[in-house]
Write a protein that binds this DNA or RNA. Structure first.
Lengths: 235, 235
DNA sequence: ACCTGAACACCGTTCAAGT
DNA sequence: ACCTGAACACCGTTCAAGT
């Protein structure tokens, strides 16, 4: 009776994957600060020390969570499309994997190069940036930056849920919009005009589209190579 | 004898500012995870509970740290320059304030609207985005995103120091570059080409210039209003 | 190989109390 | 108004031990 996991399934043997999965599920429901060795152990019906056999310490467990997220990324196949389209496809795939898990999305930023799946994403990103004409140094800087930017998009979506229930969330949004709207109109006219949008996101899809547009437009704008590969010869 | 602060100055009376200052200094030296109520109290030669009179809980102390950072931002005066230049000036001012404090820079992302100084920066950013022709909703989304992007630039500068001493840092960079260089050249040719730049940043100034160029170019590229205000009439 | 129990050195925070 | 002391319910982690 006390041998079943927190989600009701009968307890299988513990594994790195099961632990990382449980950590993501817990973070989705109660936030990253709830992800604790002891809490995870309790949810798996196991002693806290059991986890230490699978992960040497908590930081390596966080690495495992990041790796799990990178594995959810479904990279589009390489194609003959212009590089901006292909780069956008990569970022969209990353975004799709991170959006369901805003509480842990921030973990991936510093961990792409220590995850097998993360390396593939980095490699693809770098290859498109090199097609754009950037040097290896610039590609490295921009690639790291693009990963961080996608994470930022997810973790600072206006009005992101705090793990509250539906009603408490709506209340919080209303309160925030009202308090912004009550600022001095002389000093903060633009904040007041944007108060509603700063408190919550009317259309997440539009928000993410705008963010990706900005990123791809920015990269294209500073690139030195043409977007279309067919134009082989220049004047 | 035991009544002086950790930095050797004679202990003044405790204040919110002094506590926030101490927290930033400590984070700069030993990282955010060293910033603890108890450690801060010890550094100030005071009991842990003393801090609770000035900040109701730790989260409010983190708000105070973010506020301290926003206060370091030296916003350029409003001018008649085209909006992209002015927007860049705002982002540069923010960047200059955050660069010295990478360990706590991430705290500002979600706190701009609860800090007096943060509100000013948000207002300025929104005003330039409105000049660019964006709607209040788009301006809100892009403004929050630009703040996050600048933070990302700072917190994920390649080869960021970990609080180690000079030598340990260089060793870590060398090891990282070597391990990236040892990857399979067939599967990761671009990572290998960029290995050095992924492990450390040869020129931080060039890195930040490239990042800001990308952001401003991106915003300009998706904007609907002309960059120059003198072109009042369009065909 | 996989897991447990007891113990250690930490946390944030509450509460009653002191000046 | 400003600070202390003792106590509580947590942390991550080590170590020796069990199967």
């Amino acid at each position: 009776m006390k041998k079943s996991g927190s989600d009701g399934r009968t307890r299988e043997r513990l594994s790195r994957e099961a632990i990382a999965d449980g950590a993501v599920t817990l973070a989705d429901a109660e936030g990253l600060e709830a992800v604790t060795i002891r809490r995870l152990a309790k949810d798996h019906g196991v002693s806290p020390m059991a986890l230490y056999w699978h992960f040497k310490d908590k930081d390596l467990l966080l690495d495992g969570i990041a790796d799990r997220l990178f594995n959810d990324v479904d990279l589009p196949p390489v194609s003959a499309d212009p590089w901006p389209e292909q780069l956008r496809g990569v970022l969209e795939a990353l975004l799709a994997a991170l959006r369901p898990h805003p509480a842990v999305a921030g973990l991936v930023t510093s961990r792409s190069l220590i995850s097998e799946a993360g390396l593939n994403i980095a490699e693809r990103t770098l290859s498109h940036l090199r097609q754009a004409g950037f040097s290896p140094e610039q590609a490295a800087e921009l690639g790291g930056y693009l990963l961080g930017a996608v994470v930022t998009l997810v973790t600072s979506e206006p009005g992101r849920r705090h793990g509250d229930d539906e009603e408490a969330h709506e209340d919080a949004v209303r309160v925030k919009a009202a308090s912004l709207g009550a600022l001095s109109p002389r000093r903060y006219p633009n904040i007041i005009a944007s108060a509603g949008a700063l408190a919550a996101c009317a259309s997440p899809d539009a928000y993410y589209r705008l963010g990706l547009d900005m990123l791809i437009t920015g990269i294209s704008g500073i690139a030195t190579a043409p977007a279309k590969p067919e134009a082989e010869t220049a004047p």
